[in-house]
């Protein structure tokens, strides 16, 4: 099994193990979050700072229901119990965002306030949600993934293939990608095929025209919140399953999510999804050290002596922002012309 062919295989497996698989699942989580942000932006016209903490709230309900189910011995076998708990959590999250809309945002809508006022209000909502999550579940780190952990373990893979590099594939990574595909497909079916979905798109494109043609704005707003809450809950749960749940980290997710929404063209759901993957892959690829990868591909005497890292991992989270700035400078409308002025 020696030779250049094996080297190429090893290099590809190495790349898949450390870059492709993690970036794909991370990208799916970001994409779901960004679609939620972009929907709210398209219809309600403001950047919702509370989105990250709403994701945390949804995940928290998932965890509580999971614990409840586990205590009754109900599970999904090899799959995590959290999937069973997800529908309940989605309902809870929807209730929360509708409550916020009634108590906070509706008032400003009636007053026709400037978008920036909504923005400040969403910061207030962010803190309250943040406090609620800590009140109920505390600030600690929680792992709630049960069932099988791996589909393939790195060592088993090595033994199986005889390669010197292993590929590990976690159950949660596969679930993330599958659930994300289902959720996005359902969303697009809704937006493109149903009356309500079409009304939403019309409202988002041109509010006045939509109102003239008899679309009920309250209904559009409510449906938007329902969709945003659902997506936030799914995104949060998938992220928590794949990594772990810690309220603090969900605040930090806000930046890559915003970056993804803007890169794709804010207000554009398709753009948000692509933006999610662009941000995730850039983050992982720019901070990956290519030394080992190149060692397999290059002849021995050309093997690099440095780590061949484009940017140190210290600045990992900065990548999403650098992308954001580049987009703002070069093409402020994003990939799919969103609204910027």
């Amino acid at each position: 099994m020696d030779g250049f062919g094996t080297d190429i295989l090893n290099a590809l497996i190495l790349f898949a193990n450390f870059v492709f698989v993690p970036a794909l699942s991370y990208g799916s989580q970001l994409a779901l979050g960004a679609v939620g942000v972009t929907l709210v932006y398209g219809v309600l016209r403001f950047a919702n700072f509370a989105h990250g903490d709403v994701m945390a709230f949804g995940t928290m309900i998932t965890i509580f229901v999971t614990w409840g189910l586990q205590s009754y011995g109900i599970g999904l076998g090899p799959l995590p119990t959290a999937l069973l708990a997800l529908p309940v959590a989605i309902l809870g999250t929807i209730a929360l965002v509708l409550f916020y809309d009634k108590t906070v945002f509706q008032f400003y809508r009636r007053n026709r306030s400037a978008p920036v006022i909504y923005l400040v209000a969403s910061v207030g909502v962010m803190f309250i949600t943040n406090g609620l999550v800590r009140l109920f579940i505390g600030p600690d780190d929680r792992r709630f993934a049960d069932g099988e952990r791996f589909i393939i373990k790195a060592r088993a893979f090595k033994k199986m293939t005889g390669l010197s590099e292993g590929l590990s594939l976690q159950v949660t990574q596969v679930i993330t990608v599958v659930v994300a595909i289902i959720a996005v497909a359902a969303l697009f079916w809704f937006l493109n095929k149903t009356r309500t979905g079409k009304a939403m798109r019309a409202y988002s494109d041109n509010e006045d025209l939509a109102l003239l043609s008899g679309i009920n704005p309250d209904r559009v707003v409510m449906v938007t919140w329902i969709l945003a809450g659902t997506l936030a809950c799914i995104a949060g749960t998938l992220y928590g399953l794949d990594k772990s749940f810690k309220p603090f980290t969900y605040f930090h997710l806000l930046l890559p999510i915003f970056a993804a929404a803007i890169v794709g063209g804010i207000g554009q759901p398709v753009g948000a999804i692509i933006g999610g993957y662009v941000v995730a892959f850039s983050e992982v690829m720019a901070t990956y050290a290519y030394k080992k990868f190149l060692k397999y591909l290059l002849p021995d005497d050309m093997a690099p002596s440095t780590l061949m890292q484009f940017l140190s991992t210290d600045y990992k989270f900065a990548i999403s922002f650098i992308i954001l700035v580049l987009v703002l400078l070069i093409r402020p409308t994003g990939i799919f012309r969103g609204r910027v002025y």
Binding site: A47, P115, I262, Y341
Partner: peptide
């Protein structure tokens, strides 16, 4: 750009 961009 729109005010939200400054915030983000």
């Amino acid at each position: 750009l729109r005010s939200d961009y400054l915030a983000i």
